[in-house]
């Protein structure tokens, strides 16, 4: 984030106050959570019904499980645990949680600006 953008945050707020600088990242993280949740639902549904909604006689088996169950619930669990770790470790950022004073807010903005530069 450039210095100009930092100024923009202040100017942008039409309400006439400075928006908490942490919220931008917070909103991003909430969005990641929603996206991962939806992907998870799609994976679960597509493998579960895609491979499972047919006569049982035609099933193939992996590790003893019917393949629909293996892909949807067993492999799905492993994949999404992996993705959760990735999301939390790589996409989530640490930040203080206490109420900011104006100085702390500015300092926080500077610190993320430093990291992204």
């Amino acid at each position: 984030m450039s210095v100009k953008e930092v100024d923009n945050i202040k100017m942008d707020s039409t309400e006439g106050f400075m928006e908490d600088p942490r919220y931008k990242q917070c909103n991003k993280e909430a969005r990641y959570g929603v996206i991962l949740g939806l992907l998870n639902l799609v994976w679960w549904y597509v493998f579960g019904y895609g491979l499972g909604d047919k006569p049982v006689e035609g099933y193939t088996y992996i590790l003893g499980f019917p393949s629909w169950f293996f892909f949807s619930c067993v492999l799905g669990a492993i994949v999404f645990i992996g993705l959760t770790f990735f999301m939390v470790d790589k996409l989530f950022k640490h930040m203080p949680l206490d109420k900011f004073t104006e100085e702390e807010a500015k300092e926080y903005l500077k610190s993320i600006e430093g990291k992204e530069a």
Partner: peptide
């Protein structure tokens, strides 16, 4: 079991969405 596993996301989803905000 399949139905129960639809709640796989609950562990990360709930806290991520309420989130730090």
């Amino acid at each position: 079991v399949f139905l129960a596993m639809s709640q796989m996301p609950t562990g990360y989803y709930t806290v991520s969405v309420l989130g730090k905000k």
